[in-house]
Design a protein around this nucleic acid. Structure first.
Lengths: 158, 158
DNA sequence: ACATATATTTCAGATTATGAACTATTCAAG
DNA sequence: CTTGAATAGTTCATAATCTGAAATATATGT
């Protein structure tokens, strides 16, 4: 019985091919990050890139699909290194806004530019292909962020 | 001077959009993996999926963009759990071939099927879009595997 | 005011990944 | 055939990372 099943699954479905590509790209990019910014951890790079504008930590946690305590640790490191400051959100004084300093802005600009190059050289796609890929990637991301945390069922109260 | 620069970089380039999508998808998929296979680590899942045929550990290391010692640990765990066996490669008796057991095959089939569904629900893409995305993802992966380890400069002897 | 919900922090513990040193085998050369 | 260098994988101790539960501070509703 396992014959046809394994034969069918053996040829990789588009979904698996897509996943393998995504994993390879993710791993490659993570590896490449090591070689450019020795004083920033990966998570710190990710946070910097996300901070195109001041954001609340909870928003970042949802955005980066991680838990608050991780955001705290990452923000601590970036704050200590002078890349950002915490400011109380005037709309809700329980929350902090993470705001990049000038130094943080510069680091972010550098990172964004470098990350773009990393993508180009890692992917090997031309600009047309990149545009197509980016459009779909964006659609995927929108879907995930919209779908949100449900799969993880964090703090599921039902 | 930082005005135009940050303005230019502020609107995200296709490359960054692509990367953010890739990261979101990767994180989401990793998170989802937790909820289906409690007795397998992520790395173990990845290895199972890669083992569509017997492979040498070194090949897997290159394929999974990781170091040999990680492959050893992962293979140990899978072997102990009965999912695979080590067999000497007749062509080079220094090397092992990792061969899935029947149980391993079953686990792999389940994983591949489940992973496909995870991709579908996480991405929200229809099948046409998935096909396009998969084609590009595959192209990217080919490029990365072909490019290989150079970026990391592991064991650079020059 | 009071009870409850939310935003973030603290911290200790678990998991995971990694590199350097080691064993076994192969390969090339003399 | 034996020696030396290269390669495949292993071991192990260490470091980096992540998380979840309990705690603090503020907000919201009654």
């Amino acid at each position: 019985m396992s014959d046809d099943v394994s034969a069918r699954l053996g040829r990789l479905s588009p979904e698996i091919q897509a996943m393998m590509g995504v994993y390879a790209l993710y791993w490659k990019l993570e590896e490449s990050f090591d070689s450019i910014e020795t004083d920033l951890s990966h998570q710190e790079c990710h946070m910097l890139i996300k901070l195109d504008a001041p954001k609340r930590m909870g928003v970042l946690a949802a955005d980066m699909l991680t838990v608050p305590s991780t955001i705290t640790a990452t923000a601590d490191a970036l704050e200590q290194a002078g890349y950002l400051t915490r400011q109380r959100d005037p709309e809700d004084r329980r929350a902090w806004l993470l705001v990049l300093t000038e130094q943080g802005e510069e680091a972010r600009n550098m990172l964004v530019a470098t990350a773009g190059e990393l993508f180009r050289s890692a992917s090997g796609l031309n600009s047309d292909e990149t545009a197509v890929f980016a459009r779909l990637a964006r659609k995927i991301r929108d879907n995930i962020v919209k779908t949100g945390i449900p799969e993880g069922l964090k703090k599921c109260d039902s």
